[in-house]
Write a protein that binds this DNA or RNA. Structure first.
Lengths: 242, 242
DNA sequence: TGATGTGAACATCTTCACAGCG
DNA sequence: CGCTGTGAAGATGTTCACATCA
């Protein structure tokens, strides 16, 4: 993943935590929370890595970027480590979020971000459909697209979610940016153009399915070409395709 | 992105297209389709890269993994390139998909994968909520969780989507795998354990938001520490935070 | 002793820069 | 000439293996 333009230099000046590590911290946080609730007080990197589905060396290197929060010969105190990760990813902070597009996806997001006890707080649900405007979803009233700038200004939202059709995405994006939003999560299947200093993450359901389909196809081809050859791997699960 | 366990060897035996490239092919495909519809017959790597939001060298290297489909001094024929990419990612093929969990998210996915003219065809919508079972969504009848194995067998589905609460995810996953599903798209915020040969991709809305929040926080800290120092970058967009 | 933290090797991905061809 | 295709350099990420220390 390329560093978002115009952000790299700032990051490097402070701690410089690798992007790949940042992407995994939320997982560690979730698993540690679950362990804490289970009454577990201490974990080794091997145990934690197992549950998180990563290599233990990778886990230790990730954590080492935050500081030396473990005890050699023992492991990590769950509660302490959890606190440190939470602080690092700004878990406790209040993040006002605006969601544009209240279709099924926007609805799902509203429910998700609204209920989760993370720092995210939905301060705006925005749609252009007059049938939706005025309705209350997840405790928030849907407002008209025309009020986008007002809503953002009211709550100083800096995170925006685009869950509109692709055709509207760039226009909405431009308005979000113009209103001061500097972090955008884009669910529309379109490439967004933004000025420097704005961070865009894309989640594309179609792309994800196509990547799976590609691998599936590769496996099918692999099976076909080696149908007559000797059995290489004990791939029981692959048998089902035929 | 780590190669899915047990798949690498098969892939390597055929063409060996890098994971990073595979992840971008759907984007190229989408943009090329749009260009074709606009009547554009030919593009240079620079033009195409610009629209796709990637570096032109990266684009050329990506395409070179598929073959030499360009013309030096000219560029790429849109239609021909589109065909080659489509073939590579199995676009025309029929991919039966089963979606488990028909909440807002499952609904959104059903609408998305059902309407898109990609090769994906929803053959099963499954939920445990008796109020939902029997309803028709995106032209498909919702069936009970108990029928999961039947539905998969009926249509030989090899791709499964998990859009259930986290608490149900692993159990559903196990049943999908036992029924012959070898590709899983997981929207539940939980780490899935699968046998070798099964490919899992995770999409976690909470994680995505937290990554954005992290960068946002970093920028804020960066601004704070250099409030008194000389202006380094022409970061106009960053001014909005204060 | 036993698990962390980390240098070094390895693997993957990106970008540069230019040879080579239409 | 202009653009593709690609070797080589650089950047980032992962894994190994072990020094280090509670």
């Amino acid at each position: 993943m390329p560093s978002p333009a115009g952000v790299t230099d700032l990051r490097k000046s402070t701690h410089a935590i690798p992007d790949a590590t940042v992407a995994r911290l939320p997982i560690y946080h979730r698993v540690l929370t679950s362990l804490l609730e289970s009454g577990v007080e201490s974990v080794s990197s091997h145990e934690l890595a197992e549950v998180c589905g990563v290599n233990s060396a990778k886990l230790r290197k990730d954590l080492s970027h935050l500081g030396s929060y473990g005890t050699r010969g023992v492991g990590y105190r769950v509660e302490y480590l959890l606190f440190q990760i939470a602080r690092e990813i700004g878990y406790a902070q209040d993040w006002p979020v605006v969601i544009v597009g209240v279709g099924n996806l926007g609805n799902a997001l509203a429910g998700y971000a609204g209920s989760a006890d993370r720092g995210f707080r939905i301060v705006g649900l925005i749609d252009s459909d007059s049938d939706l405007v005025g309705q209350t979803i997840a405790g928030v009233e849907v407002r008209d697209l025309a009020e986008l700038e007002t809503v953002i200004a009211e709550h100083s939202a800096s995170i925006g979610v685009i869950a509109t059709p692709a055709s509207a995405a760039q226009a909405v994006c431009d308005r979000l940016v113009a209103s001061g939003v500097t972090s955008i999560l884009n669910f529309a299947p379109s490439v967004l153009t933004v000025p420097q200093g704005v961070d865009v993450r894309k989640v594309d359901l179609g792309t994800e399915l196509q990547i799976l389909a590609f691998h599936q196809q590769q496996r099918a081809e692999g099976l076909r070409t080696r149908k007559t050859s000797k059995r290489t791997s004990p791939s029981t699960a692959l048998e089902n395709i035929s």
